[in-house]
């Protein structure tokens, strides 16, 4: 089974069209190199009115507000909010834990796999951003933390034509592979987020697509730093329903995707405790992200993500309009 995200069927095309229509709006002020649709922290002379200020010599007289002068006999400059494009930083988690669920023998993942869904969401986000004239940069956490792959940014930001196809091609090559990992490899998402935080990036939108099945406190800290850098932060947490509900019966051996750990148990006996732990964890993730002003959405890999994603995009659009944006 190919690992390439499929968007060329009718459902995928419909989903993509709707997502493009809604757009992926940054709710925070972003910095871009070109005029765009996003709010910029800078004042400029665009369409959206920002404020009046007193004329000082050197100001372009074209921006004098003559109507205000007629009323007040004072020279006033009319300022507008600068709108710019932004860079979408997609942090894609393809660590071995994203290989779930997969066949234990062949290591294949299906279209209901977390890894596949994460790549699909990445592609959609990239294409939507491209349709808005925004740049997309792809950061990959795949657990291969070797020197060759030390730079996690595998696609730098670009607005040139064909960027979307380049993203799709790159995503086709990516697939999470189960295997034994060192503790450092297990926290590969934290490593990548660390790189995002440490780079002098312009303020943009950071989209994290991951199951977040790493130690949460370091991750939480890094996500807080992302927000502190001024980035808008959106976290799509991709989990499989089996990981949330533990629906198995009979005797089951759970093989860890990231280590040689094997646990034989009767899920019926642990279901209640397990689901409680997972629910508590999810609540904590939501609360922490809400605390830093980040958006969070739980995407079930075995369910159609369209509604979840479109709802999220619509929500962001509505919130942007409510805050005065277009």
């Amino acid at each position: 089974m190919s690992g390439a995200p499929i968007l060329d069927d009718s459902a995928g095309q419909g989903f993509l069209a709707k997502a493009k229509a809604l757009g992926l709006r940054a709710l925070a002020q972003v910095e871009g190199g070109r005029i765009g649709e996003q709010k910029s922290p800078r004042r400029g002379f665009s369409v959206e009115f920002a404020q009046h200020r007193e004329y000082v010599p050197g100001d372009d007289p074209r921006h004098l507000d003559w109507r205000a002068y007629a009323r007040t006999e004072r020279l006033t400059i009319k300022e507008y909010r600068q709108e710019t494009n932004y860079t979408l930083q997609v942090v894609l988690d393809q660590t071995p834990s994203m290989a779930s669920p997969s066949s234990p023998d062949k290591g294949l993942e299906g279209h209901t796999g977390k890894g596949y869904q994460a790549r699909l969401l990445s592609l959609v986000a990239g294409l939507v951003a491209q349709s808005q004239g925004d740049q997309t940069s792809l950061w990959l956490a795949d657990g291969r933390n070797d020197s060759r792959r030390g730079d996690a940014c595998i696609i730098p930001a670009t607005v040139r034509a064909g960027a979307g196809q380049m993203l799709a091609n790159q995503l086709r090559e990516i697939r999470p592979q189960p295997g034994n990992e060192s503790p450092a490899q297990k926290s590969d998402l934290a490593r990548v987020l660390g790189q995002v935080v440490s780079r002098p990036l312009r303020r943009g939108l950071v989209l994290v697509i991951s199951d977040l099945l790493e130690e949460w406190d370091p991750l939480s800290s890094l996500l807080r730093q992302v927000r502190a850098r001024g980035h808008d932060l959106l976290v799509l947490q991709v989990l499989h329903s089996d990981e949330i509900d533990m629906p198995f019966t009979g005797d089951v051996r759970f093989d860890d995707l990231e280590s040689a750990t094997r646990v034989s148990t009767r899920p019926h006996q642990i279901r209640q405790r397990y689901t409680t732990l997972v629910a508590e964890w999810l609540d904590r993730v939501r609360a922490d992200l809400r605390g830093v002003g980040a958006d969070h959405a739980l995407v079930r890999a075995d369910k159609d993500p369209h509604d979840t994603v479109l709802t999220l995009l619509a929500d962001r659009l509505a919130r942007r309009k409510a805050s005065g944006g277009s």
Binding site: S97, P101, P104, K114, L213, D242, F248, D255, S259
Partner: peptide, 8 residues
């Protein structure tokens, strides 16, 4: 039944 598992 063998189940590959992430949330170990």
């Amino acid at each position: 039944t063998v189940v590959p598992w992430a949330a170990m």
